[in-house]
Amino acid sequence: MSVLVFIDHADGHVKKSSLEALTYGAKVAAQLGTSAEGLLLGTVTEDLAALGKYGVTKIHQAANEALNNLDTQVYAAAIAEAVTASGATVIIFSHTPTGKAVAARVSAKLKAGLVTGACALPDTSNGFVVKKGVFSGKAFANVSINTAVKIISLNPNSYMTVAGEGTAAVAPLAISAGAAKVKVTAVNKVSGDVPLTEADIVVSGGRGLKGPENWGILLDLAKVLGAATACSRPVGDAHWRPHHEHVGQTGVQVAPNLYIAVGISGAIQHLAGVNRSKIIVVINKDPEAPFFKAADYGIVGDAFEVLPKLTEAIKKMKASA
């Protein structure tokens, strides 16, 4: 019996969401009186032993470069072998594009119950019950997993990374998985930007900014905050900003610590994509904008005047901190 945490990586680095999953997995293991181990498929440039500081005692690594590309069949087969090798009874994924693709497949392969989008530690006082967001963030469901092996995929930004002391033993894992049927032919990344789903802070713009030529003031604010940028659906549809920045019901769903919405009215479809954010700031010149009802802080004012001042004020605060 142990807890196995799937470690996702890109460009040679372990993803931030996986560090959260490791911290979470270690906590689940402590709750169950067992240890947590990590599983990494592929190769990274960083020192895996150092991941021990998140509370895992061992990292299983199948250091095969072909595994740096995702094929869910190959991944699921490899994970199933690792589960057998480690005797894991709980498997943790991050609810990220990779986790979403792989966790369900592993669930069906092992016939192990899966709760996706978990936002809290499981309640193990009576069975094994996991809390997750449902109805696009408008409610939570407590879901009981009724199988011997249990799988959780954890929402990014819902569990804080805690780094302590310790190193993990790194153990090579030999897997017998077959060749990938999915052949990756191109990867297009928006370079230099903070990935939207991993960002601590998101600055988002709507039609209130009036046109793509006005985005500079929003990008300046994002830059001083180290924030990712996003937009509302009308902005994405009008191609003022790239499609992948569209946040909302049909776009990307985000849950940052801070979401700053500028010139976005706050239609229910938009709120469905952002309502898991911890703190919401709304800047809108219309005091009746529905977004204010979902906000923690707000400024009723013209974005073109407020944003440059806000950027300056944050710069000053950072300089004095």
């Binding site: 890109a10 990220t96 594009p97 049927k181 990756v184 032919t185 191109a186 297009n188 928006v190 992948h244």
Partner: peptide
Amino acid sequence: EIEGGEEVAEV
């Protein structure tokens, strides 16, 4: 979709 971009694959 992948984090921070997109990937093209053949199958």
